[in-house]
Design a protein around this nucleic acid. Structure first.
Lengths: 173, 173
DNA sequence: AAACTAACATTTGGGGCCGAACGATTTACC
DNA sequence: GGTAAATCGTTCGGCCCCAAATGTTAGTTT
């Protein structure tokens, strides 16, 4: 095993080498490619775990939970900001809110001074769901970062924060 | 501004503080929470950019491109391994392949010795699409990691690799 | 050889996802 | 004060997504 790779890394790194070999001639920035594609692969793997182990028992979709979570942390707000905050489109939010209202976890309220707008709030049942799910969610988070030291976990968060920041700035936000 | 945070970080860190304040009493592992939720937020932000700027002009969905990419790198293969490699379910792959075949980018071929199985291959047009899209994709990857040094980018890739590895091991793979 | 059993891809049903089109409302302008 | 423009949430069409059910085929047991 090459000394340059930490134990357990070689299998994943192999995929990156394969890409290099099959894509030579395209002059790719392999460092960025590895970092970004690992962001995607990690997000997918962890998300699949959480959907299966935490969300499915509660009959909750990923987006539905994100919406509940945003309402729990940032409080009641109108649809538009809620969609932005949850990272979904307005059209999608309509469907998600229909589902959440049907389950009695969130509620829409008219805004008196502007009849186009809608205020969305958590019901007590919705608040309870977030309070129940969050610890289970967080437990999964602890598990998957379990191989990292505290310093490394903090470094990971910080590096990702900078990538996220860069992506958002590029979008001219 | 606290010296501990790099410039531009405070806005994002604020969200993490807010979570701590609203969720005190739940005894959350905030370090893991920040790292993992930044994985999700970064993946979503970057993916949205790529879908909008790179994939949409080619009328390609994310999964459709991943399938093409896997075929390009790992070569023709049967449905089952293709679904696993692309990170989607078998049922989803059926639909994606229907779309890709309709567009002439991939093709299904019967496996002579076992009529249950199906071999999937890239068409020349499909190969061309991957070759065209990859550099644009990679350019976006370079952009969003542009604020990181080469060492930091390599560190990010390595830390994510370890989290991914841990998640896959937990799934008893 | 007949009957299980296992392994395929596909179909089905319910939901999520987006952009674009839509209708209702508010604001700005003349 | 009446019309035009902008801004809401919703609806619509097309695709993606999964788990579970389905039907076909191959392997295994008797």
């Amino acid at each position: 095993m090459p000394r340059a790779f930490a134990a357990g890394d070689d299998e994943l790194v192999e995929a990156e080498h394969l890409i290099r070999d099959r894509m030579s001639g395209l002059n790719l920035d392999l460092l960025s490619l590895a970092a970004v594609s690992n962001v995607f692969r990690t997000a997918t793997a962890v998300r699949n775990r959480m959907e299966r182990d935490v969300l499915r028992p509660h009959r909750l979709s990923w987006s539905a939970f994100v919406v509940l979570f945003v309402l729990r942390i940032w409080g009641s707000q109108e649809s538009r900001s809620l969609a932005t905050e949850a990272g979904i489109s307005g059209g999608t939010l309509t469907g998600v809110l229909d589902t959440l209202e049907r389950k009695g976890l969130a509620m829409r309220q008219p805004v008196p001074e502007d009849r186009r707008r809608v205020e969305v709030a958590l019901t007590p049942a919705g608040t309870k769901v977030v309070n129940d799910v969050m610890p289970a969610f967080n437990h999964e988070e602890s598990l998957v970062t379990g191989d990292l030291t505290e310093d490394e976990t903090a470094t990971l968060a910080s590096l990702l924060r900078r990538v996220l920041r860069t992506a958002e700035d590029l979008d001219g936000r």
